[in-house]
Amino acid sequence: MKALFYPGCSMQRNARPYLDSLLAIRADIGLELQEIDDWNCCGATEYMSVHRVAAHSLIGRNLALAQAQAVDTDVLTAGCSACFLNLSKTDTQMREDAKLNGTVNEALAAGGLHYDAGSLKVRHLLDLVCHDIGYDAVKARVVKPLYGLKVAAYYGCQVVRPDYDGRWDSHEHPTAMDTLLRALGAEVVDWSLKTQCCGGHMSVIGPEVAFGLIRRLIHGAAEAGADMVVTLCPMCQLNLDAYQVEMNKHFHTDYRVPVLYFTQLMGLAFGKSAKELGIGKEFVDATPALAKIQAEAPKVAEAKRRRRPKPGDGLPMPRME
């Protein structure tokens, strides 16, 4: 499939491994990306805190450029949660609020641009991979299954919430990435923190708040037995990886849970080299975890015996004898 692509500032540098691994796997999954020419920053969570209309206009320029440059596609994708949500939010709110739509287009006109709200489908990259390309197409490309690797699928906040277009099965316990990682052969651990906050901008403006949130996530993943956390967002990766080191200093702990992007795991399963996928640029070394990937499928554990219901277990139910 073909999609317009908004890389965003993080993917250019801090999350370069995310971009590199995406570019390495795109041909395997038949994804053709058309980068928006001369895109600008989406404003993250900061621009909107200062100027409301200007923030939507800043995002509006990207939407207008995408609409004007689109060739054979009306899907616009971003890999960063904040970039995705900002594009989706402006598109949605322009559609729902005629006044905002008029104001943003009046601002865009000052730059000779116009955006027809609703003309693009804004989708996060994980959404495209799971729902448009599909698990079967991904599975078909796996040559080196990730058998033996235990992963915690971490979705963070802004992809699954507020979910303007209703793309996910749950806002709090989504399963798409779990299914994707299982299709790659990995074992996905059960944990309850998959959509809890990584700390966002608090790692800079209030580090102690962020450290608490980071510890909760890293401890949760470690306790669930995960060898690594798998993420879909540059901000989450930065907070959980680079700030894991700072968090350890703050709490005098010694967690070492590496944090990789789902595209990097797809690349590994597709037989790409770690280097090509940008693996090695993380702060918490992923090498020990990746050493666990076995060449052979692990033996399937014997099916657990079903627990026989004890008399009086749960609510009394009518029985058919």
């Binding site: 001369d38 409301r52 209309v53 939507h56 320029r61 104001t103 000052a110 730059g111």
Partner: peptide
């Protein structure tokens, strides 16, 4: 970015409409 003048014009107009 290349279109800095364009972006500035858009943001300036947006702020006047804030």
């Amino acid at each position: 970015i290349e279109g800095m003048a364009q972006l500035s014009a858009i943001l300036e107009r947006a702020k006047s409409l804030e």
